[in-house]
Structures are given as structure tokens and as C-alpha cells.
Write a protein that binds this DNA or RNA. Structure first.
Lengths: 164, 164
DNA sequence: CGTTCAAGCTTGAAGTGTCAAGTGAACCGT
DNA sequence: ACGGTTCACTTGACACTTCAAGCTTGAACG
């Protein structure tokens, strides 16, 4: 973002060039509005938020439609606490149920119900169409791959700057 | 995200290929964790959220350190409502004050105070350093420019799919 | 002038996320 | 076998965002 115009005593910081700033502001706009747009579409058409969709989708990808909470948190980029709240809401709506893992009582398994599966199946086409129209089909295959790689690259830096 | 494995009656939807899905999941990870990481750093070092920083930064960029609420909302990617709440908090902390626009009473001007400016000046170096280490310096100048352009490209699609 | 309209902003309630503390199950050393 | 520790998760309080009204000011029209 813009640096203060005057009065900062020469710090050992390389400020952003005009070009860097412009790119960064574009990226920030995307970071703000892309998730927003996806949430809008999902909520309008299926009364689901993106996390909720991701939870259902990830569960549906397993043969037994089941995943441990911690694994689910990992793949949905959610904290365990957040996932716990999300699953609680999904449970109240009958899309998911929970059961303790019999092999290790510390784990909780989240299980996609039939209703949950139907809901996902109904939501998926619209979501994918929206994704395609906003992102996937807007970029060439190479551009998309590059974007994915850049994202992964940045993620690696984030992870190594481990705030955890 | 993963499509349901079976049972969806052939809809007119092109599902994502494995490669597309992989890129998309990378992007989603970035959309989740990059804002998080930036917020962490800002909050840890300066007790500011990213919106708050943006508000201060954008105000500081004006000669009179003043902007109309609506213009400020625009450049910070915030809704007017959200901005109103944010500015209220910043006002309570003494970083910003508000005054009605004398030329048109409908407008409210947000004004950066000296304390707010000092706070921004103190926060900026750390923020920029963090940005550089996560994003700017991780990519080559061309990569960054391309990323910015791709972002702008996607933004254009989002805006034209006007959910407003 | 007076009425209607829209724009710009504020407000309060409801929803969602985060953080810190709490619970209970398994592990580990003695 | 029992005491402490770690792990997996839950819970509740608080903070922030959003959404739907509401308020105030100026413009447009008669």
C-alpha cells in the first residue's frame, strides 16, 4: 500500500515501486472480491458458504464419505475450531453427522449424510460453472498453471515464515 | 472442488480436469492464507487489521489526509457499512476523525490525525517488509506483473458478472 | 415552496470467525 | 498402574462483517 509521503526517517526498507504497488493492489482486489463472489453465488443458489461447500465436497470425495475432523480442517483450510462450528451448523441442517472413531476415541469422524450429498450434488454444477466463468475459462491453460504455481510458491513462503 | 463421484445426471457442465482442480486448490489456499498472514503480522506488530491499515494508508496518500467515506470505501474494497464501523473504531482510537463536508452535507470526510499518521508510519516498514518477503520478492518482476494482470483480468469478469 | 426521490452514511441485530480455556482420550515413563 | 503430557476436539465469549432499516441532506419536478 501507499507509504507515508514524508517524514519517515530512512528505514532499511525498500518501498514498493509504482509497478509493484499496482500489481499488489490488483492482487488485493482479487483477494477481496473473488471469495466474495463465490460466496454470493453459492449462497444465492444453494444457501451454502464456501467453507460449507468445501466440507461437503471433501467428504464426498472419500469412499465412505467420512473424514476425521482434523483431516477435514486441513484440506478445507480451516482451523479446528472454525470447522467444529461449521460442522455443528451442517449437522443441525442434517447434511453431516458426527461419530467418535472407534479405533481411537480422540478422533471424531464427520460423515456426509444422503441429504448432504444431494445438496452438494445440486450445488456443484452451478458452482463449477461460476468458477469456470470467473477464473478457469478466463485464463489460458498455461496461465492457469502458472497462477497455480505462483500461488503454491507464495504459500511455501507463508508456511516457512511459520507464524504457527 | 471435487465433484460428486456418482449419481449426478449428466448436466451441461464441464467438470474441472485434474490439472485445473490442482491449480484451483492452490489458488484457494492462497486466498485463505495470504490475507491471514498479512493480518497476523499487522496485528502482532501494530495492532492493526489489514482494512485498518488500508484506510490509514489511503488517507495518508492524500495531500490533506482526507477522503470522503464513499471514496475511501471504494479504494479499500469495503462496503460503506463496513467502512463506517471500521472508521468508528479508528476514531475511538484517535487515529481518524470525521467531519461533514461543508460543500455538501451528505458527504462525510474521514481525516487522518497526527496520531494516526504516526501509527501508520510506524506500521508501514514492517508491513512492506512482510509483503516483500511473502509475495513481491518471491516472484520475478515479470511474474508479478503477470500475476497482477491475471488478477485484473479475473476482476473484470467478476465485475461484469455484476451481482450488485 | 412542497413533495418526492436518490445519495451518502449510520445503526443494530444476526451471523460467522477467532481466541483462550476446557474436556476427555490415549500415550509414556516409572 | 498411575500421573503427567499430548492430542483431538468443543465450548463460550468476544470481535468483526453483513444485512436490512433508518436518517439526513441535496436535487428534481411541479
Amino acid at each position: 500500500m501507499a507509504q507515508p509521503r514524508r517524514g519517515a526517517k530512512q528505514p532499511p526498507v525498500k518501498w514498493l515501486t509504482a509497478s509493484e504497488l499496482e500489481s499488489w493492489l490488483s492482487i488485493v482486489r482479487l483477494l477481496t472480491w473473488l471469495p466474495w463472489s463465490i460466496d454470493q453465488q453459492l449462497h444465492r443458489d444453494s444457501k451454502l458458504s464456501m467453507v460449507e461447500y468445501q466440507v461437503l465436497a471433501m467428504l464426498s470425495d472419500n469412499p465412505d464419505r467420512t473424514m476425521r475432523m482434523s483431516a477435514l480442517a486441513e484440506v478445507t483450510n480451516a482451523s479446528l475450531s472454525r470447522l467444529s462450528h461449521v460442522v455443528e451448523r451442517l449437522e443441525r441442517r442434517g447434511f453431516v453427522r458426527r461419530a467418535p472413531d472407534r479405533t481411537d476415541g480422540r478422533f471424531t469422524k464427520a460423515i456426509l449424510t444422503d441429504v448432504g450429498f444431494e445438496t452438494l450434488a445440486a450445488a456443484a454444477p452451478g458452482h463449477v460453472r461460476h468458477l469456470r466463468s470467473l477464473v478457469i475459462d478466463v485464463l489460458s491453460p498455461e496461465q492457469l498453471r502458472r497462477l497455480g504455481r505462483d500461488a503454491a510458491h507464495i504459500m511455501a513462503r507463508i508456511e516457512s515464515s511459520g507464524t504457527s
